[in-house]
Amino acid sequence: MIGKSTYKAAREVAQIAEDHFATQIEAAKKENGENLATIPPARIIEAMIDAAFWASLRREEGQSPKISLAFLPPEQSEQPLRFEHHLTLSPAVLTKIGPGVERPGIHLGVWYEGDYLHIWGMTRSIPDFCFVLDVSEPGLLVIKHRRRDGFGKFVNVVVLTGDQIKIVDEQSVHTPECPDLLYTLLGFDSHRIWNKSLNVLVQLAVSMRSHRKGGILLVVPSGSEAWRKSIRHPMRYAVGPAYSELAKLLLQQDDKDPLWQDEVKRAIEAMAGFTAVDGATIISDKYELYGFGAKIDRRAGSEPVEKLIMTEPVLGGGATIDQPALSGGTRHLSAAQFVHDQRDAIALVASQDGRFTIFSWSTCENMVQANRIDSLLL
């Protein structure tokens, strides 16, 4: 039964989430959008979060559940797996069924009849802007939705970690020199102007974070050799000529072809895997691999980085100017120095603890900016 939750954060974010989805879906309708989801009512959002949170703290055969709940009727899904009898949406049921739905892309379908929420089955297909609630680990929930064109990482709306609430700040895109990658992760794109190259960079970031070994990915201008002045030579795992599998796949772009999508994902996973090797992985902005395991050196004649701008695209995460050491460990310091010396490059840094930061150069502030984006990659 839909009632008041016992998880305080569920009550605090339910209306905020409803307002977000209502805004997105109504805007898409005005653009004659098709295959759009139903706006989730706040009371249902609250109940779904409450059940999922308490389920996340339980264990089944020693394992915590990792599940994804999608709010939609079976009629809005293609080839849904429907249960003969509806299941009650409760922590006990979610814990029991969890081991069977852990694989990526599988959602438990949730709908309601009157004041009763139920699980009607499973689906891989959901409409655009469908309310999705992911249980990533104990006490960690993410509210997200499918992108308008359906290709790429879902857009995060709210991240709940115990009693900590991070609401993604859509106004972050209006800050001076907002990195294109951050703009994309916040979901500010359309089918007409969607840049598949940026989408690939998002997928690389997600894959880098998922291997949990930490790493640095340096993206440098294609055709330029200037970056070599900031790398210690000889580079242990230099690639020559540049490896261009991913670059060639993008030139063959056919995002409606599942086989092409699978090939791109495989190539992305392979490239992100190189970042697990100690040192930096270096690619061009056309996704040609130049090498990995590289050691970053301060360019001859360059000054060390003394300060940078730190931001996080969540409410209350406004820009602050601080010492580079506060942005993270050795990887973060090296990446900040590289961007300071190679101002037309960007650096993506993943920490073993899940922290993820984009380093880029701000011409407005004339210093390195560090955008922490791990709350957008969950």
Rank of each mutant, 00 (worst) to 15 (best):
I309F: 00
L333N: 08
A300C: 05
F151S: 00
L141I: 10
Q352W: 00
A267F: 05
P65K: 09
A47C: 04
T363D: 13
W361E: 07
F154N: 13
C364S: 06
L141F: 07
A28P: 05
S222K: 10
G98A: 15
R147K: 13
Q337D: 11
G100N: 14
E245S: 04
A205Q: 02
R331V: 00
E75L: 13
N199D: 14
F338M: 06
L141D: 09
H145C: 04
E34P: 00
V159M: 02
I106G: 01
L57G: 01
P221F: 12
A51W: 01
V305Y: 05
K248P: 00
G162Q: 04
S197M: 10
I231M: 13
W227E: 05
L289I: 15
E312W: 01
L251Y: 02
P221I: 12
G33V: 08
D278N: 12
K248S: 11
K196V: 14
V135Y: 03
I283M: 10
P40T: 02
N371E: 14
A280E: 07
A347T: 05
G215H: 10
V239G: 11
F356H: 11
E288N: 14
L140R: 15
T357Q: 05
D341S: 13
G301Y: 09
S230H: 12
G354W: 07
L377F: 04
I193L: 13
F356A: 12
A52K: 08
Q171T: 14
L87Y: 14
S327A: 15
L72V: 13
F71R: 08
G354E: 07
S302G: 04
D374Y: 07
R124Y: 00
L89C: 10
L89R: 03
M1P: 11
G214A: 03
E34M: 05
V135K: 03
E288P: 10
S360G: 07
I119Q: 07
K30H: 05
I44H: 12
E365G: 00
L185N: 04
K4M: 09
L204Q: 02
S375C: 09
A276E: 06
Q352D: 02
A226D: 15
V157Q: 09
I119V: 15
A335G: 03
E170Q: 15
R59N: 10
G3A: 15
G62D: 10
A238Y: 08
S327T: 14
S222T: 12
A92E: 15
E46G: 09
L117N: 07
L201G: 01
I16S: 07
G328V: 03
F53A: 02
A27Y: 07
V264W: 04
P304R: 14
R372Y: 08
S207T: 13
Q171I: 01
M310H: 09
E288R: 14
V368E: 07
D189G: 11
V13Y: 05
G150Y: 07
L289C: 12
Q337T: 10
T88F: 08
G293Q: 10
H174M: 05
E60S: 05
V159I: 11
V349K: 07
D341Y: 06
V173F: 00
G273S: 14
F359H: 11
D278P: 01
V155W: 03
M1F: 10
I143L: 15
F131A: 13
E225P: 00
